[in-house]
Design a protein around this nucleic acid. Structure first.
Length: 552
RNA sequence: GCGUCCAUGGCUCAAUUGGAUAGAGCAUCUGACUACGGAUCAGAAGGUUGAGGGUUCGAAUCCUUCUGGACGCGCCA
């Protein structure tokens, strides 16, 4: 049961108007509180306490209410009956919403030429979890990986290959783009050559296409390998810039029909400025002066394509917040040309930084690759396991390491930068992924040991404070997950899960379950609560794309 | 220069989107029935929420000025 919604609905019904229901930070006040008396006082011409005293008797009639009190400046605090909590708490199930939305989610954005690096971590991890959340609350999603496989980097790579030959493996391939970029910085003719090659590739040059088709698979298979380690759901479409470029002519026609394409210094641009803009708003470049398609053209064509094939209600992009201006321009252009009526959303991430507050680099000063980061975490787990003289297999070590990296990523507010401190996330003490998994493993261990006891809902069970708090948290899952979806904020899920684990460990310590001196009735009640807790935790862990190890 | 975002104990992050006594983790100190699994749990200490002003019953949250930082501002993606 969604306790919050139930209580809120019942109160609104009995009072005849909608009140704002809150859960007090301090549990001593009660399970729920409303500020209705304070909000309504002025309009009613009464003081908050007077008004509160009129409301209280009505609320006392509700059969699930233990007591109602007025406190502070006029808060009305409610306490829910224990029996009601025990009888209505259950582990979360998929939610069937009345308004199922078709959502196109865009994240990942591999770049051909560059191995996946730390900058890909957040979009993929957060995007994946958001996808799982969206499905959990009843929406349809389609996952797009808008691969960067058609822009200037292709020209730079081809130019290099023309001179030095085809790379033999992924490692060799990875060196090409940085080398060619460095050369372009010093040598303008090299850059111009690459730009020219890019334009010709895009218009079908056979020689370049042949080279292109050879290195693309090398790069893609390497990136797919890395992503598989992240345990994320597969993309539905990896149609990248090249794939959507097929739709650029149709998109261009729409833009021409609406007469918004303009010539400017040899380029084709769309003016997206607004009269009340007080910020610089450069035009969106559709085609460059060499005739190459810009990334904006690919983005426009992608929206055109998705609108046609998916009829999405909303397209959500998960990228670095440095692209905010680009998406603002893009969304304006879409609106002007009326390419789709779908809502367009950009979720912009902060940067992952080192301790110095600058973008995270390895000790050598290079951008850390995603696989390096996972390797580092796995090594740290291995050391930790060795210290504690345990023996865990490779799979478990990977599961624990991944939980450390992903949970740390998910728990941060997406908008803000966060510091990637290898030591902190691999110490595994406190608020970490391993803590979450450990809690689940212990609960599972208790459940496994209780084979002879049937786990059913007890007729009656006197709740301890720990049990009560835990059950209320479980009953808050649905409310939380709906909020996480609405706010595009998977960090709400991560924070909730951590709180759940704290309460679960609290319960575990203070409420012995299988010990011999515990009577069978209490044992049954606590097993019931343990099972529900485990199921809730397992759901949360699954939504974060993590796995519960068989032991730890 | 213009714009966007940010600033919360020594450190890393929360705060139900305007609610009550600002909560956790790390680090520090003290403890836990001879471990239903100690990667755990309990307690102590640590705060004028960057600074000033304003809005109202009520501000970390909204407005404003300032300070400090990150990022962005036409042919890169």
């Amino acid at each position: 049961m969604n306790l919050y919604k139930y209580v809120s609905d019942e109160i609104n019904k009995i009072l005849g108007f909608d009140v704002g229901l809150e859960t007090p930070k301090n549990r001593d006040f009660g399970d729920f509180a409303t500020n209705a008396a304070m909000v309504g006082a002025k309009a009613a011409g009464k003081n908050p306490h007077e008004l509160a005293n009129e409301i209280v008797p009505k609320l006392q009639e509700l059969n699930f209410i233990e007591n109602v009190t007025v406190a502070g400046p006029g808060f009305i605090n409610l306490k829910i009956k224990d029996d009601f909590i025990l009888n209505n708490a259950h582990a979360p199930e998929h939610i069937a919403t009345q308004h199922t939305l078709n959502l196109d989610l865009d994240y990942g954005s591999y770049n051909i030429g560059k191995a996946l690096h730390i900058g890909h971590l957040r979009p993929i991890v957060v995007g994946d979890t958001f996808n799982r959340i969206a499905k959990f609350v009843g929406h349809n999603t389609k996952l797009y990986n808008h691969v960067g496989d058609w822009g200037r980097p292709m020209g730079l790579i081809i130019a290099w290959i023309l001179e030095y030959g085809m790379p033999k493996n992924a490692n060799e391939f990875n060196k090409i783009y940085p080398a060619s970029t460095a050369r372009a910085k010093e040598d303008e003719s090299w850059l111009n050559n690459a730009r020219e090659i890019t334009a010709q590739l895009q218009s079908g040059n056979k020689e370049y296409t042949k080279i292109y088709n050879e290195f693309i698979p090398i790069s893609m298979s390497q990136m797919n390998e890395t992503v598989q380690r992240l345990n994320v759901l597969p993309f539905d479409s990896i149609m990248g810039e090249r794939g959507v470029s097929e739709y650029i002519p149709e998109t261009q026609k729409i833009l021409e029909n609406t007469k918004i394409l303009e010539q400017s210094d040899g380029a084709l641009v769309i003016n997206v400025r607004n009269d009340n803009d007080n910020a610089p708003m450069p035009p969106l470049i559709f085609k460059t002066n060499t005739g190459a398609n810009s990334y904006a053209a690919a983005d426009l064509a992608a929206i055109y394509y998705r609108n046609k094939t998916d009829k999405p209600d909303e397209i959500i992009y998960f990228t670095d917040s440095r692209q905010t201006l680009h998406f603002e321009q893009l969304f304006r252009a879409v609106k002007i040309a009326n390419i789709t009526t779908a809502k367009l959303t950009h979720v912009g991430f902060g940067t992952i930084t080192g301790k110095d507050g600058k973008p995270f680099k390895t000790r050598d000063g290079d951008v850390a690759s995603l696989s390096d980061i996972l390797d580092t975490a796995e090594t740290a787990v291995q050391e930790r396991v060795a210290e504690s003289k345990k023996h865990l297999n490779d799979k478990i070590i990977q599961q624990i390491a991944l939980s450390a990296v992903k949970f740390n990523d998910l728990i941060h507010d997406v908008k803000s930068d966060y510091i990637f401190d290898v030591n902190a996330i691999t110490s595994f003490e406190g608020r970490t992924g391993p803590y979450i998994l450990y809690t689940a493993v212990r609960l599972q261990s208790v459940l496994n040991r209780s084979n002879d006891v049937k786990i059913t809902k007890p007729e009656h069970h006197n709740l301890t404070t720990e049990e009560r708090n835990l059950l209320i948290q479980i009953m808050d899952f649905e409310h939380m997950i709906l909020n996480a979806f609405e706010n595009r904020a998977p960090d709400m899920l991560a924070n909730y899960t951590y709180d759940l684990c704290q309460l679960a460990n609290n319960f575990y310590h203070n409420c012995p379950i299988l010990r011999d001196d515990i009577n069978p009735e209490i044992k049954a009640g606590r097993l019931y609560i343990s099972k529900m807790t485990f199921d809730t935790l397992a759901t949360a862990i699954n939504l974060m794309g993590l796995e519960i190890p068989s032991e730890m």
